[in-house]
């Protein structure tokens, strides 16, 4: 049961920085990250992943994530642009994270098939990537983030382009995963496609207009 903690966490870019002073997200809890466009949501996201230079503490359970390289963090991610691999078909893409850790077993394949069928994709499992629609890719990307049992889920607008029925199915799949292994979820979104039971919200605001320094803080939005 891991808790995600950030203290004086700062993502540094040459042109601006993003700060989160103090935050903790419990297992199974959803952290909704909200900010207007251009306020560094993606930078914040990339900082947590380890793709940008950071300062301060980022701790998951007992592990200091900030000192681990990106591939050792064991995070499940849904990227806004999906970033699936064009040389793999749908189910191979979904098992990519598993394959990097071990040879996929029958259980892994069965779990993948179940996930595909839960998201109405059972007929598209063997489809090459270029034959999948945007919505189908989005769902494959979500399955890929779940199958290898990550320690943290990071979702960057994962339901964009999906209708409400599919969003509900995705939500159910996510909840099923969280009941299997309760991990913190960081969800970057413009609007709530659904309401998680346990959630906290992180708002982004501009601290210093001259230096383009954004601060993310819990509680009320500055706009509210």
């Amino acid at each position: 049961m891991s808790v995600l903690r950030m203290r004086d966490f700062r993502v540094m870019l040459p042109v601006f920085s993003v700060t989160c002073d103090d935050l903790s997200v419990g297992p199974g809890e959803w952290l909704l990250v909200r900010a207007p466009s251009g306020f560094g949501k993606s930078t914040f996201f990339r900082g947590i992943l380890g793709l940008e230079k950071t300062e301060g503490e980022l701790i998951l359970g007992e592990k200091k994530m900030s000192i681990l390289p990106v591939h050792k963090r064991n995070f499940g991610v849904v990227f806004q642009e999906q970033l699936l691999f064009p040389h793999l078909n749908a189910i191979e893409n979904s098992l990519f994270g598993v394959r990097l850790r071990r040879r996929p077993t029958g259980t892994d394949w069965n779990r993948a098939k179940e996930a595909f069928s839960a998201l109405d994709l059972e007929h598209r499992m063997e489809a090459p990537l270029n034959e999948l629609s945007g919505g189908e890719r989005q769902r494959v990307s979500l399955i890929r983030a779940l199958l290898f049992d990550p320690d943290l889920l990071l979702l960057d607008e994962p339901f964009r382009g999906l209708d409400s029925a599919l969003i509900e199915k995705c939500h159910m799949l996510l909840e099923r995963q969280l009941s299997r292994k309760a991990v913190p979820v960081v969800w970057i979104t413009h609007q709530n496609e659904f309401e998680p039971q346990r959630k906290s919200v992180l708002y982004g605001g501009e601290l210093n207009h001259g230096r383009r320094h954004f601060r993310y803080h819990s509680g009320q939005s500055q706009a509210d």
């Binding site: 591939h71 050792k72 990227f79 691999f85 994270g97």
Partner: peptide, 25 residues
């Protein structure tokens, strides 16, 4: 580059990410 980053996020080291993502292409 973005796909390489994605592969790294999912647990591939630099060399493996290259061979998993770039080499097939």
């Amino acid at each position: 580059r973005a796909e390489m980053e994605a592969a790294r996020v999912f647990g591939a080291g630099k060399v493996r990410a290259f061979f998993e993502v770039e080499w097939p292409r």
